[in-house]
Design a protein around this nucleic acid. Structure first.
Length: 536
DNA sequence: AACACCGTCAACCGCACGCCT
DNA sequence: AAGGCGTGCGGTTGACGGTGT
């Protein structure tokens, strides 16, 4: 909607664009005669009054505006009007590409923290950003495109990982030589998910992989949880929000809405810890090399989290699209074995139907697409070995937003939904494979690049990190659910991973199998070694 | 021309937090 | 400590305009 500037409104009070129905400040159906406050669009006259008042008295004390200026608006409304439209430092007009890019990055980091994002974008309001994002989300959803470009996802993932490492070290008091503190970003939280969207991890993706992993024995204890994921350390140091709302969790999905309404941070009680114990049991006797593998089980065991295998965690119910939430409708994309999606159904695109793979391993239908992604990724990787198509990244970002958008545009329905791209052609279409290859290749390289400075000399460990910080893999873990048959499940996944990464990982997977089996017995052993970062 | 659909935007609402008394 | 008040934040809604049928 074209919003004229406040000055314009003041100069041209007539026929204000944003005052379609009322031009008289005191007319209009929403204002009552008995001192009732007016609602609805602001008129130019009202704007003028407000501007004058604020100019004279400054911001704040908004209730006084109504009292002293005669405006029939509540304080909140005045504040909102001023903040979103009348403030002199507002930047009007469409977002620039740079701003758009920034918004995406910020959302990947922060989730729906519009106000904090606005701080990072001078002249822009939280409302503006929120509207933009929601519009963008809808557009991409409709097109079946991922919300975040891969490079941004990975960037955020890496940052998350680094931040976790900080917390890991702080909690374990073990400093990694190559550790580089990253403190000025806030980890997004995962308040929830939209019911019609795949959970690809909105929460889990955002959960720093190692934060899931680096659960030391102490961290399983109430105080340990606190020490491991101190909120304060996550608060932006650059633009500290005036106030952090209740949910500024570190472990996004888990922190905010542990099933059953348990707040992670204040959970002194055992359920969380038990959840971790149970859900990550798979690797509890394993070495750090396999810690990452545990994340699969951990993130996958909703059952472990709420003790009810059939119940869906709260956080899965509503999608905030927090950081790194990927709409695997595109990323994971329909696997070759997946049914072809209807081009006109984004939901079906996003929620990949269960595949034979999924069904074969007691997979949660909601998450089967993830395993699909893994399996298909493995297949793709296998097929594309020797194909350097995805190895061309030279810098930090493999796909820049422009490229990504361009890519998206290819997929977008200017008549073609992304699903149509996948469905119009054969499941093995070049585009589809290219898409998968692109991301996979990027991921591996990216992870390797970022972990290398961390002195991850152990190749295998690095490999594990690479894999399991992968959103889709993390999420694919969901398919394991209650872990009725860990061996079977792991072998299935292992196969995919072996193909995916080769022998190095295979070796680790073998070890993991052992660990997983014993770990499902629910014993936490040496959690110090559990933390991959603490094992130097 | 009429209608339906969709995207965009402004505004509202409920809730939560911090401060003050 | 408890309650009131002011403020900020995020989700949602409704109006409007553009576009397609």
């Amino acid at each position: 909607m074209s919003m004229t500037s406040e000055s314009e409104e003041m100069i041209m009070p007539i026929n204000g664009v944003d005052s379609p129905s009322i031009d008289d400040a005191n007319s209009g159906g929403n204002v009552g005669g008995n001192g009732q406050l007016k609602k609805g669009p602001w008129t130019s006259a009202e704007d003028a009054i407000l501007v004058e008042y604020v100019t004279k008295h400054g911001e704040g004390n908004w209730n006084a505006v109504q009292k002293h200026s005669g405006l029939a608006r509540c304080g909140k409304s005045c504040r909102l009007r001023w903040a979103n439209h009348l403030r002199p430092d507002l930047k009007k007009g469409a977002f620039s590409p740079e701003e758009e890019r920034r918004i995406i990055e910020l959302h990947a980091k922060m989730g729906n923290k519009w106000a904090r994002m606005a701080v990072e974008l001078p002249g822009r309001t939280d409302n503006e950003i929120k509207n933009y994002w929601n519009t963008r989300i809808k557009r991409r959803q409709r097109a079946g495109l991922p919300i975040y470009p891969p490079d941004i996802c990975l960037q955020a993932l890496n940052e998350n990982q680094q931040t976790e490492n900080i917390n890991t070290f702080s909690s374990s008091e073990v400093l990694h030589p190559g550790f580089i503190p990253v403190t000025n970003f806030d980890v997004p939280d995962f308040k929830g998910f939209e019911p019609n969207q795949q959970i690809y991890s909105a929460s889990l993706l955002d959960i720093p992989s190692s934060s899931l992993l680096d659960i030391s024995p102490s961290s399983l204890l109430p105080q340990g949880i606190h020490s491991s994921y101190p909120n304060k350390s996550l608060t932006s140091t650059v633009h500290p929000p005036k106030r952090l709302r209740g949910s500024e969790p570190f472990i996004c999905g888990l922190t905010n809405t542990i099933p059953g309404g348990i707040q992670y941070q204040n959970s002194g009680s055992s359920p969380i810890g038990q959840s971790f114990v149970y859900s990550s049991a798979c690797d509890h006797n394993s070495t750090s090399d396999h810690a990452t593998l545990s994340s699969i089980v951990l993130s996958g065991s909703h059952a472990g989290l709420n003790g009810n295998p059939s119940s869906e965690p709260n956080w899965a119910m509503k999608l905030e699209l927090p950081s790194l939430q990927t709409h695997m409708g595109s990323w994971g994309s329909p696997s070759p074995s997946s049914p072809v999606h209807s081009p006109d159904s984004v939901d079906t695109l996003i929620q990949t139907p269960p595949t034979e793979h999924a069904q074969s391993c007691n997979l949660s239908p909601q998450n089967s697409g993830l395993l699909d992604a893994v399996l298909y990724g493995a297949q793709t990787m296998k097929n594309s070995k020797g194909n350097n198509g995805y190895n061309h990244m030279t810098g930090h970002s493999y796909l820049h937003e422009a490229e990504w958008e361009a890519y998206g545009e290819q997929l977008s329905p200017l008549g073609h939904s992304s699903s149509s791209v996948f469905s119009e052609s054969t499941p093995n279409s070049l585009d589809e494979r290219r898409f998968a290859d692109t991301f996979q290749g990027y991921k591996i390289k990216e992870e390797a690049n970022n972990l290398a400075p961390m002195h991850y000399d152990d190749k295998a460990e690095t490999t594990n990190q690479m894999i399991f910080s992968r959103p889709d893999v993390l999420l694919a873990s969901n398919c394991f659910g209650p872990m009725k048959d860990p061996t079977k499940d792991h072998s299935l996944l292992k196969g995919a991973i072996e193909t995916y990464l080769g022998d190095e990982l295979s070796r680790d997977c073998k070890q993991m199998d052992t660990g997983a089996t014993s770990a499902t017995q629910g014993h936490v052993r040496d959690s110090c070694t559990w933390n991959p970062m603490s094992t130097v």
